[in-house]
Design a protein around this nucleic acid. Structure first.
Length: 186
DNA sequence: GACATGATGCTCT
DNA sequence: GAGCATCATGTCT
């Protein structure tokens, strides 16, 4: 069962927590790749100094965060890696959830080809890695997760969730200490 | 394993 | 022109 719009039209914190244990699916000409989401971070728009949309900063790059919940915000980081985020909340509330790690389930061989035959553990164990493994590119910027190319499915998992501080946002002052990172316990 | 470092390009001031 | 929501690789143990 694909998640519908209602799932995404909620606070980024709720969406980030509930995405843990769900299945992210990417369809391409090469085949289907998918994995269970095991790590996310919430970025809470205007109020969050770590967010690209802090103080409602709205530019060509951040525009997708202002879309209706359920869109895909893709951006380039450190000149070489892409990060994939799920936009949350209603239009003009710029919240998003960074997908930080997956547990590969489908299309593992295709992921290995895209990632040049890394071990299963290294295929999707970071935000820059999973975009490569799933074949996500800048063309997928602002793509709608309610369509059929990239989407998220319900599972029957009942994960135990751990909450910690977010990663690599030391520049953001006290926002760096907010417990807005969610992990599935092994 | 734990750390340090370099690669690299786009965005915003 | 600075800085960035990262990763792979190297060195040292």
């Amino acid at each position: 069962m694909k998640l519908t719009r209602n799932f995404y039209i909620r606070s980024g914190l709720v969406v980030a927590r509930e995405l843990i244990g769900k299945k992210l699916v990417s369809c391409s000409e090469e085949g289907i790749t998918a994995g269970i989401i095991i790590e996310t971070e919430a970025y809470m728009g205007a109020e969050d100094a770590a967010s690209h949309s802090y103080k409602n900063r709205r530019t060509a790059r951040t525009e997708s965060m202002f879309s209706e919940g359920g869109h895909l915000y893709v951006y380039l980081i450190y000149g070489m890696y892409l990060c994939a985020n799920v936009v949350a909340n209603v239009r003009d509330i710029p919240e998003a959830v960074l997908i930080r790690a997956l547990q590969p389930t489908d299309g593992i061989e295709l992921m290995q080809n895209r990632r040049q035959k890394k071990s299963l553990k290294d295929l999707c164990s970071g935000p820059g890695k999973l975009t490569q493994a799933l074949g996500i590119s800048k063309k997928d910027y602002d793509l709608d997760l309610c369509d059929d190319k990239i989407f998220i499915e319900e599972t029957n998992l009942k994960p135990t969730i751990i909450t910690t501080k977010r990663i690599n946002i030391d520049y953001s002052g006290e926002a760096a200490d907010y417990p807005w990172r969610f992990l599935m316990q092994n």
